[in-house]
Design a binder for these strands. Structure first.
Lengths: 198, 198
DNA sequence: TGTCTAAGCGGAACGTCGTTCCTGTATGAT
DNA sequence: ATCATACAGGAACGACGTTCCGCTTAGACA
């Protein structure tokens, strides 16, 4: 495996201490600003919150999307790891799928505008998009396959589409009390069930 | 009712001929640019296509969203009017609902980025959002109520949420061949059906 | 401890966007 | 033909993401 901080290798030199400190500060500042102003908050605001210049942000994170990924990486990881666990502990694969999707919806709806930014094709957000999907689609596929093999859901649904659909349904879940994303996702998952007539 | 072009009243003076001509030109230019570059095309591009200055656009349409509304108004109108017709001609209310939703999905997915811009809370897009929903939600509610009274779908689903859900599912339907919005909407509508147990 | 090199920093600067504003022009009533 | 005024054009503004460059300073080596 590759060395974690470069101490083990001679080619990889460790980052300077102030750089490390700044990266941490930036992640914290970004997380704080995302909570108050949403994920689409201006880069300058994050820089101001962290007390650094905008250039510093771009030194550590090539683009805004990379910063977002870095901030939420461990939460995505946790969600991904919950998949197999739920499959093992739930009464049926379909129940596990439902609970796992709930977890994902929780994650998306508690971050202002995260869902909205995930589908965005704007400048370089493919990174974000790709990371989320690469990490979560396989987990979803596993659950989906299990439910299909158990005969609970109609076969032929691809996990990628389902994840995109659920993500889309969560867009605008905040800032519009009339729209209940969770209910809509519930309907979508219910629609997955094997229909009455063969 | 209010006079259509101001000729009937003396208080309302008719617009100048060149202004009328420019408004038409603008609508055509906008429609053309929306097809090639998507709904989020820069205002300057539309102005260039029409051969006018940017100021001229804002004279006729207070904001970008108003222009979008104007371009698609008659299509939205057609969709709205199709609702009652389908209800009358279909085998069941649920079938009518499904076909009407299909119409809506067709509309959204054939306009690049329209769905995406509909949920946007950015500067003044509430106009667009409001117009679409004000016009279509009642139609949807009518179909939904009919299907609920017929016992086909579970009660308690509100039309507003459903429309937002369908709209959201259509986001990014173009420019990503791996995502099939229509299938997802199909699942959502299937999830509306009365579940097996009471 | 002193020196020096390059990693790192801040923020000015650039290009793009939506929108506003001001000036000159051309319409159409008189 | 005259003229008030509705209108068009595009420069200008502020906000954004991103890039660039000159100064600062960490930290390896002597």
């Amino acid at each position: 495996m590759t060395e974690i901080d470069g101490r083990a290798g001679k080619a990889a030199r460790p980052k300077r201490a102030d750089a490390r400190r700044n990266e941490r500060t930036l992640l914290d500042a970004a997380a704080a600003v995302f909570v108050t102003s949403g994920v689409e908050a201006p880069v300058r605001d994050i820089a101001a919150e962290a007390g650094v210049g905008t250039g510093t942000i771009y030194r550590h994170f090539p683009t805004r999307a990379d910063l977002v990924v870095a901030v939420y990486r461990h939460q995505v990881e946790a969600c991904a790891e919950a998949g197999p666990a739920l499959l093992a502990s739930s009464a049926s694969p379909y129940a596990a799928l439902g609970r796992w999707i709930d977890l994902f919806v929780d994650f998306l709806t508690t971050k202002h505008g995260l869902a909205a930014v995930m589908r965005s094709d704007k400048a370089g957000f493919e990174v974000l998009h790709a990371y989320f999907l690469d990490r979560l689609v396989p987990v979803c596929a596993r659950l989906l396959d299990a439910a299909a093999e158990a005969g609970e859901v109609r076969p032929g649904t691809d996990a990628y589409g389902l994840m995109r659909g659920v993500g889309n349904l969560c867009i605008g879940a905040d800032n519009d009390p009339r729209y209940d994303a969770r209910r809509m996702v519930g309907l979508l998952i219910a629609g997955l069930l094997q229909p009455r007539s063969t």
